[in-house]
Design a protein around this nucleic acid. Structure first.
Lengths: 147, 147
DNA sequence: TGAAAACCCTGTAATCGCTACAAGGTGGGG
DNA sequence: CCCCACCTTGTAGCGATTACAGGGTTTTCA
């Protein structure tokens, strides 16, 4: 199949496929006489592998490492396990950070209703106070929360 | 104060400060005869404002918009509120995505213990199966989960 | 006084994972 | 023959920094 067909079957943009080839994540395909890339089913599997890993939040260099493991079936798989452990740890930390962020933003949001002028806006007041070194709703400490 | 001092007081790298100035997030400071930037306390407050908004996950263009609101105290603050609402919605969606990701990764991780060879590694098997169009632990449907 | 360390300047390129061109070649149908 | 869809390579853009290179200036310490 040609690159457009591979793009359709994988749901991946043709330019992204060429990008993966340049980055060494996809084997370079044969070429037709006119220079067009000619792919086989093995390329589709390779590409799905990359997309699936990406959907799990892995970086392209992580995908490259997994591909290397897959090509050397006798190698110890401890590297795979620790790669996943690191990935889980990273996602976990990001999730905790986003949870904190969301509650900070909600606290800040509660300091203003609609229809004010900017000078009376609790949100803006909080942000400006914080910039001046003062306290703010979004970064207040747990102790002493009035709710 | 000079840029190094401002960097120390704000906890922001000097190169980042120059970048903010180029991007119009920080007023251009006066210059000494030798061309060095000379900042006042107002600049520190401006910079803290930017850093605080960034710590809430806002983009630089959002910060610019907030700055514009802060400079026009008589403007309606509805724009500020909806900016925050959009920001909350975005962070919320990201958090949900990360939660799903984390549980997918943990499910995948459980398919392998240490000390195997790569060919026996459940993780790699799952990833390769998924690439071939088959089922995988990380993206299985809720129904029929054996645990 | 003189040298070294620490600071400052501008401008440019790198990061990551794509995405979007520009400028051209190829293939098949009406 | 023309048009449209497809393919090629190469280059530049996104966002928010970070990291130089290649210079000039100031401070410090012996």
């Amino acid at each position: 199949m040609r690159i457009g067909e591979l793009a359709r079957q994988s749901g991946c943009d043709a330019e992204t496929i060429r990008y993966y080839e340049r980055e060494g994540l996809l084997d370079a395909p044969q070429r037709e006489d006119n220079g067009y890339r000619r792919y086989g089913d093995a390329h589709l599997v390779q590409l799905n592998f990359v997309r699936h890993c990406r959907s799990l939040g892995m970086s392209l260099s992580d995908v490259r490492r997994l591909r290397d493991f897959a090509r050397d079936p006798s190698a110890a798989c401890d590297g795979i396990n620790s790669l996943l452990d690191r990935q889980i740890e990273q996602i976990h930390a990001q999730r905790l950070a986003l949870e904190a962020l969301e509650s900070q933003l909600r606290a800040l949001r509660h300091t203003c209703e609609e229809g004010h002028r900017a000078s009376e806006c609790g949100i803006l007041q909080n942000l400006q106070q914080a910039a001046g070194g003062g306290p703010c709703e979004c970064h207040r400490t747990e102790a002493g929360h009035p709710h």
